[in-house]
């Protein structure tokens, strides 16, 4: 499995050859944007689910 930048090979990759536009920071920001609300939902649901064993 490729886990790097995913720059890859082929027509698109060969066409430019410049520095990657999408930095690691952009990827981290993108994941944070969706990860934070998702984490909020998971935490709230875990708290609710815990009532199954405590309530």
């Amino acid at each position: 499995m490729s886990t790097g930048t995913g720059a890859g090979t082929g027509a698109g990759a060969a066409a430019g050859g410049g520095a990657p536009r999408s930095s690691t920071a952009r990827v981290a920001l993108g994941w944070a944007l969706v990860g934070v609300p998702l984490a909020y939902g998971v935490v709230e649901t875990v708290l609710r689910a815990s009532k199954l064993f405590t309530g």
């Binding site: 698109g12 430019g16 050859g17 930095s23 690691t24 993108g30 994941w31």
Partner: peptide
């Protein structure tokens, strides 16, 4: 919307997640 060379494919899943969430 065709990715430029060097585009990081790991930006695509959060884009998809933004819609699905």
């Amino acid at each position: 919307s065709i990715a430029p060379p060097g585009f990081n494919r790991w930006l695509v899943p959060p884009a998809a997640l933004a819609v699905h969430l």
